[in-house]
Design a protein around this nucleic acid. Sequence first.
DNA 1: CAGTGGTCTAGACCACGCG
DNA 2: GCGTGGTCTAGACCACTGC
Lengths: 258, 258
Amino acid sequence: MSDTGPRLPKYHRIADAVRDDIRAGVLKAGDRLPAETSIASTHSTSVPTVRQAMSVLRAEGLIESRHGIGTFVRDSHRMQRRSRNRYGEARGRDGLLNNTFRHEITFAGTQPVPEHIADCLDVPAGTTVVTRRRSLFDEDNRLVELGASYLPREIAGGTFLEERAVVPKALFRCVEDLTGRRYTDARDQVTARRATDAEVDRFGLSLGSYVLHLIHTATDENGAVLEVSESIWPADNVIFVDHYPIPAGPTGETGSEV
Amino acid sequence: MSDTGPRLPKYHRIADAVRDDIRAGVLKAGDRLPAETSIASTHSTSVPTVRQAMSVLRAEGLIESRHGIGTFVRDSHRMQRRSRNRYGEARGRDGLLNNTFRHEITFAGTQPVPEHIADCLDVPAGTTVVTRRRSLFDEDNRLVELGASYLPREIAGGTFLEERAVVPKALFRCVEDLTGRRYTDARDQVTARRATDAEVDRFGLSLGSYVLHLIHTATDENGAVLEVSESIWPADNVIFVDHYPIPAGPTGETGSEV
DNA sequence: CAGTGGTCTAGACCACGCG
DNA sequence: GCGTGGTCTAGACCACTGC
């Protein structure tokens, strides 16, 4: 046997073989892999070893197993793109927002503000705020985004924003018209984190997978927060894009390249 | 045995037990778990079943195994924060950029543009561009960021930007001074994706884990690209934050809430 | 029903790090 | 040398799906 033969564990070599088949197009998205018993005899090994190889590929997101049916090549790189140029078409809008998404308000009313939102909204923990929760579905009715908007009661309390109906125009436009204040500054905070159990369930994800979590904070010219909005996407399905003008003016003469 | 007893698989219950111990503080970050043989006898089961439970917790990022030593509770929620207010202190800078990071230029010179950058740079695939690669390390000398800047040869070719030395001031300032053109608009593209083998290696990640990948494109007032810059962080360690002004002007009266 | 993946056993031997 | 986790075996039985 050559030098490279026994270097790698057997389950690793099986995973490599299947991965190569997927990369080379021998196995295409949606194809069913041979049964575990069959792969085991092909590689002259035992079923548990094959299962270990499968668990590697499953962790890499390349395959998906369905109990009683088989193991399938996942439909990979099906990235959706979403832009966040919510404030009009004046500049840089690139039309990525796909209007075929179905949009559903799952809740509208007042609720205590979630812990991770309180800071952004600039209110004490536990404060009651107007909350609008939404779900977005693609043309195949698959959930692609979970989101929510949080508005201070001084702004949206007692208005139609507490009612569970899609608003007649962009939400920020409603707030501007209701209050006479203007959206002047924004702050985006993006994290990738492991999906919660609820998200795994709702999105149909696998254990240990990630979501992208955007928290968007909009303020008026006095720095008062008008709205905090959050969006959650399965990490593999999204590219978050933002355009913005670069402020003019003097800059610090730091040595940092970054 | 009660109704709930045999409902969940044994490996699942073992994982739950350990997870609860971690949540409750019985097992703290850095603590070593009992040996697999020991856990097996505690739960009256076999070692492979315990190993299956461990693989669940490993996928969740809660534990980490070191061959020949033991299995340890990971130091979780050690999020670092990084802001990306690179264009001066004029507005909204919140000082999150930690200056204790050590900054190292690992490459400077001309290279063919990477495939995923060509589009952003607005050049044909394979074009040679000035490339500057950097690594950032924290106070404990752990790699926290991999990054690179790509500049068209018309802008940076033949200048000191092709030399492997930290620049005397912010990179965008160098480009503005060299060319007389101004950074006017920017586009940020953020994705979370599985770490490549190289990234797993460099960052010391575990298989199947994620990185956050930022591609930043800066253009002048004519829309010509001045610089594309990318940053890669382990997903668990970073919050990406951006501040920006909201453009004034009329907006479309769409029904979309998002 | 047959075929699939999911769970589990009771071992074996190897590779690694430490004393 | 010893204890640790890593690899692997050759089965067993169960749960799910589709026919």
